[in-house]
Design a protein around this nucleic acid. Structure first.
Lengths: 291, 291
DNA sequence: GAGTGGATTTCGCAT
DNA sequence: ATGCGAAGTCCACTC
């Protein structure tokens, strides 16, 4: 086992640590809320909202400083097993191989102990990630650890996501003209008895307008939903209302439905919304970009 | 820079490699479809279905052998940026710091070149992950790499997930009595003009039964959907049909709707389904567990 | 390629 | 806590 301390951040790398050494390092890292990367040969068992079993193989386990827990196989975007990290607590233990197999099969320990002749060799490292609510348990059984690294990462960088549906709404609030000249926002995310209206406003002539926003092609569902909103809002305010569907485009073959339901379509490009938010917000951000 | 070859699998670890060395190692690893772990100080820019920007900080980048690409911050369950790995290609480049900032701000290279006095120093490693469809691009700009590891992982272990809705369906196919005594499965996932019926069968008296399965509490939506299925199936077979909603429980306040729509509720515990699948399937699996 | 439905969905925000 | 809607949802599947 070789321990290397990297000079930059507090990054330690351990090559082929014994399981005894590994349990020590991992315990300390979890306590100190450091990020852990563990590469090794393991089995995984999960019980909770569903249950799963993953047989022996080499994987990457990441435990983050907030407790988030990810087991990644060598391929695929998603972790094969995980824990969100909210209220996740950890329990580490060295156990015997037979104990592990019994544990994986949920057999009772007593029946095992009855059959046991020699005390078990402690040759498997069990990592339990436990969550209270919803009750979930992931157990990883490492029989070999190839690589173990503890990381103290500094990451305060701001993350900004542009042109989500949320951002499109913000852009409309900033520039109501995106809907049409003279449009005024009255409120947004107005609750109706059937759901939400994205934006609620008035046009130049003072008529009520409800706006439904879609980031992507607006389809039949969005139109029917908007029509339903119209109904419930008209019941409330007791007058006619204009309905605008704001989206990059409408689905093929829905033109007629749009007309039938007396809805209006306003082309609204998510990227343009992103650009508007950029213009408004990034004057200061741009400076920090060049630091 | 220290290079360590671990004796077990083909695992290499590089401590504080220069960016020149790193680009070499990463290129080779991506070509050979090895798993890569890169820890370093970076910025990230994403454009595609949406767009995002992540400012400077220390993160973990994982590139898997199928091209899956994940950038993880020190906290949080989800990757902050990612690429699924389907048709993802990679482009690596050493660029100057100013070039990077201009690239991150989408400025035109020409305007940059006009302002440029000295040729830029190549002191940032850019990793581009590019996807064709939907068109997406993630760019990571490392100005320092703390830790770089290439992994050749062996992972053929089978993964089994129990008690998903799919498994509940399988359990019913194995033990139709779960629905009721004498129930017989005719087919499953039968297509109708409005959607799918989970299971389609006949009761003891030979009446048609359609079964809708929910892993979780069945609500209003499931009931309306099932009622819709009934209609379209009745149109087809031209006779009355029984509708059974199989779920662990129904939502509060939906009892009346259930009656109104003339649906029946059958309590079906996902865990019990999992146990049944276990009984049927794990006789052999248990043996392999003890290897 | 587009469309549909499920997911250990996750992640918000509302009540 | 619960419930609803959105997500760069992902994913498998059908058309």
């Amino acid at each position: 086992m070789v321990k290397i301390r990297l000079n930059s951040s507090s990054i330690y790398v351990f090559k082929n640590p014994t399981l005894e050494k590994a349990i020590e390092i991992i315990s300390e890292a979890v306590d100190k809320k450091e990020v852990l990367i563990i590469v090794g040969n393991c089995r995984v068992k999960y019980t909770g909202r569903a249950s799963s079993k993953l047989e022996l193989g080499e994987r990457i386990l990441i435990i983050k400083r907030d407790g988030a827990f990810l087991i990644h196989r060598p391929g695929g975007y998603q972790p094969v097993n995980w824990m969100s990290g909210k209220d996740t607590i950890y329990h580490l233990e060295l156990i015997g191989r037979k104990e592990m197999l019994l544990s994986m099969n949920n057999a009772k320990k007593t029946s095992f102990e009855n059959r046991l002749e020699d005390p078990p060799k402690k040759n498997v490292l069990q990592i339990q990630a436990i969550q209270r609510s919803p009750p979930e348990l992931v157990r990883v059984f490492f029989d070999q650890i190839h690589l173990l690294s503890t990381l103290n990462l500094e990451d305060t960088g701001r993350f900004s996501l542009y042109a989500s549906e949320e951002d499109m709404k913000k852009a409309i609030l900033l520039k109501p003209d995106l809907i049409e000249k003279g449009f005024k926002v009255v409120s947004y995310e107005k609750r109706t008895d059937t759901g939400f209206v994205d934006v609620y406003g008035a046009d130049e002539q003072g008529r009520f307008v409800i706006v439904e926003i879609k980031r992507k092609t607006a389809g039949r569902a969005a139109m029917l939903q908007l029509a339903k909103y119209r109904k419930s809002v008209e019941m409330e305010v007791n007058r006619d209302i204009r309905c605008v569907l704001a989206a990059p485009k409408i689905a093929r073959g829905t033109q007629r439905l749009l007309a039938t339901l007396n809805l209006e379509f306003k082309r609204l490009d998510p990227k343009r919304c992103a650009a508007i938010l950029n213009d408004e917000q990034t004057q200061r951000a741009r400076i920090s970009d060049f630091i």
